[in-house]
């Protein structure tokens, strides 16, 4: 039971992060490979405040969102000038730069040793069946995010951002400042993913830079593509599937020494098969 709860919580955290990824990549066509870095920024910002300054969880929540939003806003200036393959490359580069920062800004992040004993939400500490409460908070947050994104996408704003994905020039000619639309999308997507990072930090309570290297960024993009770009339910399906599938490998009786590698290989295979047979993913509506 505890194990199932653990899987459910991890799936929820990643679902939230992938919702952020998909909002940028699926609906607005910003194929970024840096959302793992955003998760890291949210996680570190929240964890530092929770651990060293003892702030209440809601404050850390806001701070994680703000820190990631700021990072996404700053990154958007060079990034949004680029298109296609070069956009992908520079965003990929940012996940390396962020990893370098996590690793080397020792005064703030404690370097390779990472931060330990990060407190969770107070409510959770007060009660016995803490994991259930944690999951409930997460699910509530996911529902709010789903509802919010749904509303945004139905509004005229949502129509414009999808238009920038299809053809930026035409949207500009139609009188929309596409850059500010895309920038706002990128920032909100970063905020959502950063908050997921905070939940990851306070759930596993120990973070170190290797958690947030480029592998995580790639994993989030794979989850979004597997579930389907430009599909909200797809984000949740993709994240859950990729959390559950490697766990199933555990039950195949593979020796521990090759478990991590075989999980990675299964990710790679999924990616290739997906791109080969169904580039739109499970529920996707947008083909890259």
């Amino acid at each position: 039971m505890d194990y199932l709860l653990h899987i459910a919580i991890l799936s929820s955290i990643y679902s939230l992060a992938v919702l952020g990824q998909n909002y940028a990549s699926g609906y607005t066509g910003l194929i970024s490979i840096n959302h793992g870095a955003f998760m890291g920024i949210g996680a570190y910002a929240g964890a530092i405040l929770l651990k060293w300054y003892g702030v209440p969880f809601p404050v850390a929540f806001l701070a994680a969102g703000a820190a990631t939003g700021l990072a996404a806003w700053l990154l958007s200036f060079p990034l949004l000038k680029l298109k296609g393959d070069s956009f992908v490359l520079v965003s990929f580069g940012f996940s390396f730069i962020a990893f370098n920062l996590f690793l080397n800004w020792r005064g703030l992040t404690n370097g390779a040793l990472g931060l330990k004993a990060i407190p969770g939400p107070e409510l959770v500490n007060l009660l016995d069946n803490t994991k259930i409460i944690f999951l409930a908070i997460l699910l509530a947050l996911i529902l709010i995010t789903l509802w919010g994104l749904h509303k945004i996408l139905q509004s005229s704003y949502g129509v414009v951002i999808r238009a920038t994905r299809e053809n930026q020039k035409v949207t500009q000619i139609a009188g929309h400042c596409t850059d500010s639309y895309r920038r706002s999308v990128f920032v909100l997507s970063g905020v959502i993913t950063g908050i997921a990072g905070l939940f990851l930090a306070s759930y596993i309570s120990t973070i170190d830079p290797t958690l947030f290297n480029y592998h995580l960024s790639v994993l989030l993009l794979i989850m979004a593509i597997l579930g389907g770009l430009a599909s909200l339910k797809g984000s949740i399906a993709g994240a859950t599937l990729l959390i559950v599938l490697p766990e199933l490998l555990r039950f195949l009786g593979l020796p521990n020494s090759i478990l991590a590698e075989s999980q990675q290989i299964s990710y790679g295979l999924i990616l290739i098969l997906l791109m080969y047979y169904r580039p739109v993913g499970l529920f996707g509506t947008y083909k890259i």
Partner: peptide
Amino acid sequence: GSSLVILVASFGLLIILQNISAL
């Protein structure tokens, strides 16, 4: 397949080869 689709697929191949080498 668009160039992005192939880029993502080649990343899949990269992950597979990297982990086979690690094994």
